[in-house]
Design a protein around this nucleic acid. Sequence first.
DNA 1: TCAAAAGTGTTGGGATTACACCCATGA
DNA 2: TCATGGGTGTAATCCCAACACTTTTGA
Lengths: 269, 269
Amino acid sequence: MGIGNVSERRDEAPQVGVTSVILALGPADDGDRRRLWLPLVRRVREPFLGAWALPGGPLRACRSLERSAYETLASTTDLHPGYLEQLYTFGDPERSRGGVPMVSICYWALVGQVDVASLEPRHNVAWFADDALPDLAFDHRRIVDYAIWRLRHRLDMPKVVRELVGATFTLRELHAVSEAVEGRPIDLANFRRRTLASGMLEETGERRRVGRQRPAALYRFRADADAPADDGSLPQGFDAGELSRIAAAAPASHGHAGALSALTTDMRP
Amino acid sequence: MGIGNVSERRDEAPQVGVTSVILALGPADDGDRRRLWLPLVRRVREPFLGAWALPGGPLRACRSLERSAYETLASTTDLHPGYLEQLYTFGDPERSRGGVPMVSICYWALVGQVDVASLEPRHNVAWFADDALPDLAFDHRRIVDYAIWRLRHRLDMPKVVRELVGATFTLRELHAVSEAVEGRPIDLANFRRRTLASGMLEETGERRRVGRQRPAALYRFRADADAPADDGSLPQGFDAGELSRIAAAAPASHGHAGALSALTTDMRP
DNA sequence: TCAAAAGTGTTGGGATTACACCCATGA
DNA sequence: TCATGGGTGTAATCCCAACACTTTTGA
């Protein structure tokens, strides 16, 4: 590796950015179906000028990766993420397609349930349902697909599901969320048994009535429910508590991004 | 994010490197137990001068991440990797512990079965068994643990197991490898059934005798055995065939690294 | 009393485990 | 004929999908 001059010339180091797939659960539509929504940012430079892309920003040495990801969130939405997890790092020189080579450290985040229409609009930002995405810049479509795949495979983690329901919830609500994310019907009776048997939930003792029918028991996640499943020393996602600490360390991380339009990082020329 | 000057000042961009955990299956010891071995590199700079660390190298913009990882392999061992997969990207500013902030894109690789004693020794490189590792620099111990965890969770993938046995093998051999990697005893009879039922294997028609007992049937992995399990568009590991293409694109990737001593990348000051 | 949702029971199949057992082989 | 490993059988268990069923509620 590297004959001759071992010292790396500066122009040989690629650009490095952090890119985020921000997922939210939308409201039910006419067909009683809920979808995942995500915000995209319109590119203001070549290549892919005018195309939609994932939000991102440059990586600064003084910030952790998670905090950088957190800041890409703040640049596109005022919502607070409740879960954040590293996805994958993409760095193929080919993916820049005309821009300078760019390494993207990708994260995915959950921001809970969102009524997209009620969000304060931001310049150059728009939300899309996962089954109605526009063409995306670069390899961003692949990154989105991967993020959704990961969410589906995390759906048995309290850290994740906690974000998609309220603090307390009925089993039917939990079931509806699971069906929405999985994108397939799930037998309610079996879901109930499986979920209760997992030991993740505890009864609040209260009940909630939705229509005029029999009220349903309310549950919450047990406080110790997200104990490390396999090996505590391994990289894991961050839940709301950990994220608030990450955010607290950030100077102007969220709230007013002022007149700044949201950024996309990837491979800008 | 970022009030005022949006253009990133150069000194705010962190160093970026690629780090690899190179795993090999060692020979059986007295107790008939086999272990995972990995090569480490002695650091020649502060911090952690003299400590053992994972091999790594800087990331160049013109190379893919996989090729960079491949080159960290070439810098520590002449063995050809048969499997390579991205692990995780570590980038906490705290992890540099006195060096400049360093983002490490970590890979893990398999180089098959190795008799460590017979390897050509390299300057500043030594192999260690996974249960007899020295103290490692930085957070490298955690990275090793994570790599082994990932290997264990990939053991049902033909791409991976193929690397740990020969082209053809008896079920007992396959069983021994699984036990060694999992680190626990596995019922042979059930292993046999499960493995055959998975459809990954096909009989060669030949037989092999080890002692003086009844000869065992030889199997090989089916050519189409590693079809994408879940979703083809997702990031996956690379097997030997794909790696040879990656390596072919590299100018002086393996073979003679000449008088160059192996490098560690992480967080050098 | 009725619709709608809450919640329970029952059954069968598939996968896994533990362990006993038979078979083939050459010394 | 015997030890050794190759290979099969089997019963117990667990988990899960399917779906019928009972209960509770307010209108």
